[in-house]
């Protein structure tokens, strides 16, 4: 794998995550989350998981962004009504995050390098993926697929209940 490209992708991922958390407008936050999903999908592709990358791209970057944008527009995005005091307090709270991340990153990297940690494993699998994946997903994990179907149905039921208009005046 090409290390500089991976480093660029991982850097973009951290930047997108911090942007999704720190940007004041919720709409822009949701778009930063979509950008994070896209970068993660490319990274998954590089790690040899094209089907997971496809799911990540279509479902997380597409569907979840649509859900967030509709939730934000339904709840009304009104940053103008926020008081100046509150905005200043929020800015002070979130400005500590990059410094905090920098400290953690440097500390963990130095500890890793000082101890010479190497996770052993087979680092370059040459096996074809799709055939084995098909067998794994459809034949060996049938109970999980049933569980997923139940979760999706439960989600659909929850949405019907939560979005139901009340009859009371």
């Amino acid at each position: 794998m090409n290390l500089p490209i991976l480093l660029l992708l991982l850097g973009l991922m951290v930047v997108a995550a911090v942007a999704a958390v720190m940007i004041r407008s919720l709409l822009k936050s949701a778009i930063a989350l979509a950008a994070l999903s896209i970068v993660l999908a490319i990274t998954l592709f590089f790690l040899g998981a094209p089907l997971a990358a496809l799911f990540e791209l279509s479902v997380c970057a597409g569907l979840i962004t649509v859900i967030f944008i509709s939730a934000i527009s339904l709840t009304g995005n009104k940053p103008k009504e926020e008081e100046e005091e509150k905005i200043r307090e929020r800015r002070a709270r979130f400005l500590k995050l990059p410094i905090f991340l920098l400290i953690i990153g440097v500390f963990v990297s130095l500890a890793w390098i000082a101890n010479g940690i190497n996770i052993s494993g087979i680092s370059d699998p040459a096996a074809p993926t799709f055939q084995t994946f098909k067998n794994l997903f459809w034949n060996m994990r049938q109970v999980d697929i049933l569980g997923q179907v139940i979760v999706i149905l439960a989600g659909a039921f929850a949405v019907v209940v939560l979005f139901k208009e009340r009859d009371q005046a």
């Binding site: 998981a49 799911f55 990540e56 479902v59 997903f137 997923q148 979760v151 999706i152 989600g155």
Partner: peptide, 12 residues
């Protein structure tokens, strides 16, 4: 990959 797909479904 199959775990990640399960996780994405739960995530959504």
């Amino acid at each position: 990959q199959s775990f990640i797909i399960t996780m994405i479904v739960i995530e959504v």
